[in-house]
Amino acid sequence: MSGSKYLLFLGCVIPYRISSYEISTRKVLDKLGVELKEMPEFNCCGFPLDPINHDMMLTLAARNLCLAEQQNLSIMTLCNGCFGTLNHVNKELKEDEKIREKVNGYLKEIDMEFEGTITVKHLIHVFAQDIGYERIKESIQKPLNPLHVAQHLGCHVIRPTKYVGFDDPENPSVLKELIEITGAKCLNYMDEMECCGAPIIGVNDKIPLQLAREKLDHIRAVGAQALVTVCPFCHMMYDLNQPRIERTFNEKFDIPVLHYPQLLGLAMGFSPDELAFKQLRVDASRILTN
């Protein structure tokens, strides 16, 4: 069983405050035979600067793509924002000669050139397309039934369709299937594809908190015991910010929020400690005893 190899693009928010996602991902991928190489050098994917300077976003993203090209490895991101940006810029630079020339003009300043030789994937693509459902199924040692969870896929891993072209953005099923492989049941709920609101935190906090509150409400309504995410920003909105949401709206939720690799890791037989469950803001020990 030959494993695949990726250049891991961690992004900024994971090392800043969501290392449970990184820890659990590394454990699980290692066991599934996926090799990760660290970025030789790093800068932000560019996403947060797109609102103020589109060219700087393109150039920051392209610089990371060039670093990957030099390593002759495709990039794997854990963050939806990094994936959306790097994938979009990679495709745009490959297809649009005018934009490529412009960005290469900037990159020339630092002796780099975009060639378009690699691809960009998100962790969920690596699970679904490269490792495949069969191999994941074989790795399950402790099926998680009767656990009932809900999924939150997030936006940039699936939209805009013309740049992503993966799964059905109106009714996504890939994460659901990946969840059900662990033996847990994935429940449907209202407005599953609604945004978490994280990108405008700092500009306006009220709206993202309202959006996140509504999602937690819909999840609770169908009786899910936990929410499963694949993006550090979404995770931050529902886990780290859950106490703040509870205070703001004077409402108790107490819904644990897991990174998908944490859920899968449990089913693969890793202990909650190995998967950094202790770092979650909302205590998840209650679902572990089930």
Partner: peptide, 30 residues
């Protein structure tokens, strides 16, 4: 946080080339 990464057995974070970023920031008009 960086120290904690070590304790958690995580590899050290890749560094940035700050001079190059400054150049790009100038040339893109940022």
């Amino acid at each position: 946080r960086l120290k904690k990464r070590e304790e958690e057995g995580l590899p050290s974070l890749p560094k940035a080339s700050v001079e190059n970023l400054a150049k790009l920031c100038d040339i893109t008009g940022l």
